[in-house]
Design a protein around this nucleic acid. Structure first.
Lengths: 225, 225
DNA sequence: CGGGGGCTTGAGGCCACTCAACGATAGTGG
DNA sequence: CCACTATCGTTGAGTGGCCTCAAGCCCCCG
């Protein structure tokens, strides 16, 4: 997906130095990697967008807030995902670690100069951004036109593709996060999951409500029009 | 509804002639320009994305459909806007002319090769795509978390910025289009507009319900949190 | 004029939200 | 290791905002 960034070792070292100066609180520096603790902010809306991030492990939520606290999560970023790429000089939404999360930082300026001289880097950047846009367009359809059951089904199928291992999907995010991603309340999400459980479409593993087995992907896909 | 267009631009220009035979108005304007009549499809989902389009005049809606007909319009493209830029080789949504619309076609391949050799072109492409992504993210917040009144207020402010001339905003799209853009029904949109009218926030010009004057942008912005 | 599409307005219904209680779980400190 | 607490999740009852269904108006356009 996005691999050619470290082609320039000088840029890599530069971003290391700059990052070291900024590490004041939670983040732990390990080369050009940071680890954020569960629930901590990686960057906030309106902050200068000097870095781009790649998730090494963990999970990140990107969201926007209304003045009265209503929240819309626009994307979950899992291992391998790149986020923080913006048009202007300021971030347009907030990014928070959902669980303890390690990210690799890339200085934006060095990325820009790499794109300037290497058309392959530029093409990858564009392709990544277009993929994000495509995801956003699909999500608009979900938010604008799907029922609660359809939304939850779509969510499960999306997560299934991205983080099912050994038949079990371990969700890093809470019901509230899911709700704010799907434009629902957490109660509605919970009810939809219970319903899918009753229908034999999914099962829970052990005591955790975050470990899910999809028993009938076919029927689930039937809810995702 | 529309003649399936060949990938070859020469064939496409030829089809202009064919179209001219079945349309009664003036179809061809200049070389790589094309005029679509009100309500006609510019391209459909799953069609090969061989061209990128720039709106010269008119208005275009881009939308996705669910199998049962529910529609979500992801963006309105007005004069000056570029649309049709996709990640894969196929279009991910349908584009239709809302009113008679003239577009300029750019062959995708030639754009790609231009980006390959000219970093400025590449940067503009990326910047444009990022702007689209930003719009999509704001729209997700609207669709997921805003009330009907807030959505209509946001819509009016957006259109006001883009197509108000001489104090009057002339909407090219129907109530149904607005509803499908905002994730509402046309009745709810109509009620919200009536409400804003009662409140003295907007007025209608003449007999048309599509010519709107914003009388109190301040108060309107108060609904857009 | 007659037809049709676009828009508004009203009445009633339903799906998701709100409010609330409770159970389960995980994190904390003794 | 256990008690304590906060957080998370489920479930129920009732409400409400938007949707559905329907009627009627206005305008455009033949």
């Amino acid at each position: 997906m996005f691999v050619r960034v470290n082609a320039d070792p000088a840029a890599r070292l530069n971003s290391l130095g700059a990052l070291g100066m900024e590490s004041d609180s939670n983040p732990i520096v390990s080369l050009n990697e940071f680890t954020y603790r569960k629930g901590t902010e990686i960057y906030g809306e309106k902050e200068p967008a000097d870095y781009v991030y790649r998730v090494e492990s963990g999970a990140v939520r990107g969201y926007k807030l209304l003045s009265d606290g209503r929240r819309q999560i626009s994307a979950f970023h899992l291992a391998g995902d790149v986020f923080g790429l913006e048009s202007g000089s300021e971030h347009q939404f907030t990014a928070e670690a959902i669980v303890d999360t390690t990210v690799r930082l890339i200085k934006r300026r060095s990325l820009e100069s790499a794109a300037e001289s290497d058309a392959l880097v530029a093409r990858n950047l564009l392709s990544m951004t277009m993929d994000n846009l495509q995801h956003a367009e699909n999500h608009m359809l979900l938010l604008g036109r799907k029922t609660s059951l359809e939304r939850v089904a779509a969510f499960l199928l999306e997560m299934d593709k991205r983080l099912t291992a050994a038949g079990v999907m371990v969700l890093p995010m809470s019901r509230r996060d899911i709700a704010d991603y799907l434009g629902l309340t957490l109660e509605t999400v919970s009810r939809a999951l219970s319903r899918l459980h009753e229908l034999g479409i999914l099962g829970f593993i052990g005591n955790s409500q975050r470990q899910i087995v999809l028993l009938d992907r076919r029927q689930l896909a039937g809810f995702d029009l």
